[in-house]
């Protein structure tokens, strides 16, 4: 187990390096980045002060250096937590990303818990009541849930929320709490707002996971050890929840490998639609404006989020299934 963890963590480090190079190159490639715009501005202002500023910036970000030097200058600061400057917003990247990343993690985690909490009972019900009306309803909803683009669902819920509930959407806080420090009322206010993005985010995942759960449970229910449990005189609900569901969880956790990227992707896009104070809108703006240091930082952090999620999934898997522990 320890060996396994060490292997996984070292792979994570290598992945992060590769991703940082990839994203750096990707965002460096196109001409017309925000830093050049900024330098242009400074040059136009003229004067000794700005000329010095221009030189300082050019030196710091290696404007005239070849790309590998540029990368090195950037990465050696990045590992210390200095991700450079957002030239669009004129602020250091690190002052911009953490709060937004926090909300992203929070939102994704809520959605994950929500979709698991929903998909397991739904899948179990669907599998144990096969070919009944509720099973068909659940199955049809699954297809719709998977097929509906998340941004569209966000839009629909937005329309619904403002029409039916008359709730202000497109924010995580009411006006009076927006910049207030954390407190119980603020938390309650947050919870009142956060449900829309969580529901939107969870729908796709729930649909997929319910499908997996149903299929797996049907598979497991056909296994001999389920009959063994029944033949011992174990009550049916214990047979299902203790003996069958536990075994059906394995593929569900494996599915995290595909659930998490979808979740993070979904979080980005629905935050843009709902204009939430998370990574999505700022990342998009950074991309559109070629505000490269900001965009790279977001891409790296989103990838890190995914890698950590996958690591947690692996640990969970080893905990649930003793057969994995051996490897």
């Amino acid at each position: 187990m320890l060996n396994f963890l060490i292997r996984r963590v070292s792979f994570m480090v290598i992945s992060m390096i590769a991703i940082s190079i990839l994203s750096f190159v990707l965002i460096e490639l196109p001409p017309g980045s925000a830093i050049e715009v900024k330098l242009q501005q400074l040059r136009q202002q003229g004067g000794d002060m700005t000329a010095e500023q221009v030189r300082g910036l050019e030196e710091r970000y290696g404007i005239h250096d070849p790309i590998q030097v540029k990368y090195w200058k950037w990465i050696s600061r990045a590992v210390k937590g200095d991700f450079g400057q957002s030239f669009q917003l004129d602020r250091p990247v690190k002052s911009l990303i953490w709060a937004r990343l926090g909300f992203s993690v929070l939102l994704s985690s809520f959605a994950l818990v929500f979709s698991w909490g929903l998909s397991i009972p739904l899948g179990v019900y669907s599998a144990t009541h096969r070919y009944t009306l509720p099973d068909y309803v659940i199955q049809v909803l699954q297809f719709v849930g998977v097929a509906i683009p998340q941004f569209l669902l966000a839009l629909l819920l937005l329309v619904l929320a403002s029409r039916a509930f008359n709730q202000e959407v497109g924010t995580l806080f009411s006006q009076q709490f927006k910049n207030a420090p954390w407190s119980l009322p603020r938390l309650l206010d947050f919870l009142r707002h956060v449900w829309i993005p969580v529901v939107v985010l969870a729908v796709g995942g729930t649909a997929g996971l319910t499908r997996i759960m149903r299929a797996n449970l049907l598979d497991v229910l056909g296994q001999q050890y389920v009959q063994t449990a029944r033949s011992k005189g174990v009550a049916e609900h214990i047979v299902i929840w203790k003996h069958a569901v536990r075994n059906a969880l394995h593929p569900l956790i494996m599915a995290l490998g595909t659930t998490l990227p979808l979740l993070i992707s979904g979080e980005v896009i629905i935050s843009i639609v709902l204009n939430l104070p998370t990574t999505g809108p700022m990342y998009l703006q950074a991309l559109l404006n070629k505000d490269m240091y900001l965009a790279v930082a977001f891409l790296l952090m989103l990838s890190l989020m995914l890698l950590i999620g996958n690591l947690l999934a692996d640990i969970l898997l080893a905990w649930v299934d003793p057969r994995v522990r051996l490897e």
């Binding site: 991703i19 994203s23 991309l287 891409l299 890698l307």
Partner: peptide
């Protein structure tokens, strides 16, 4: 396989977006 794993370690939509933003 490692290449695949690394590509899959980046969330899909943000990666697509980054690629697409790099297009002329």
């Amino acid at each position: 396989q490692r290449t695949i794993e690394i590509i899959r370690a980046v969330p899909t939509l943000p990666l697509w977006a980054a690629f697409a933003a790099a297009l002329p």
